[in-house]
Amino acid sequence: MFDLIRRRLLTALPTLAAVIILSFILMRVAPGGPFDGERPLDPQTREALMSAYGLDKPLHEQITLYITNLLRGDFGPSLVYRDFTVTDLIARGLPVSLTLGGLALLLALILGLGAGLTTAARAGSRIDHGIMLGATLLTALPSFVVGPLLALLFGLWTGWLPVSGWGDGDARHMILPVIALALPAAGAIAKLARAGLAEVLGQDHIRMARARGMRWSRILIVHALRPALIPVASYLGPAAAGMLTGAVVIETVFALPGLGRYFVQGALNRDYPLVLGVVTLYAGLIILFNLLADLAYGWLDPRARL
């Protein structure tokens, strides 16, 4: 177990470093810089700015400096939001994004597993076909369609729920974004759980349990569910990544002050440190989720334990 964590971290750190360096180089070699605004700056001001932000040093020095600062929790200054450091911006955006993503992931798991169990228990029935069609539809609908659609239905037309802003963490503001973010993932989880259960239910140990005269519901939960969750666990990493990208859209649609918004703004404005910071953070989160998925494997299937 600890061995696994150690091993994963050993691959995670180089990955993280590679992300940082790759993004760093990309941003630097790109034509155009943060100070190429509407009107050209005079060379002197430009030079002063460049040296103030350390942009005139050789590339490898810049990278080393950046990573050293990163280790101290300093993501550097934002080039566009001049009064804030990137750390400030992340500190503001992260709680919003994490709440949103965490709740959505939870909701997606509940909905997806519920749907998977329901359909697998009634395989071949109309309920099964109906739910699975719905699940496929959900995975095929972009979140920027689901989002506005929900906003239209429950916000503008019925006026039940607020459709924009964070409301300082008011629960009612969260309902629609969380649902919009969770639905596509719920569809994918439902499909995985359904397929996993269908496969496990055809296996010998299920027939053995049936031969023992056990109740179907008990077989489903005690004997079938855990192995069937393995594909769901391996989806956890990609799901987390999906949540992060989805959050970019949802935060824009519902005007939430989350990280995704900063990322888009940063990318469009060539705010290097901001974009870099967010990418680094995201990479870290995804690596963390893949680690969680690996740990989940061990619990789901003792054969995977060391």
């Binding site: 010998d204 140990h205 053995m208 031969a211 023992r212 005269g213 056990m214 109740r215 005690v222 004997h223």
Partner: peptide, 23 residues
């Protein structure tokens, strides 16, 4: 189900896969 559970025991061909792997 009741009869199987109470009065009958089953042994099958595939011992490798007939046990639930996570219990």
């Amino acid at each position: 189900r009741h009869i199987r559970g109470r009065d009958i025991g089953f042994v099958f061909q595939q011992p490798l896969t007939a046990l639930t792997p996570h219990l």
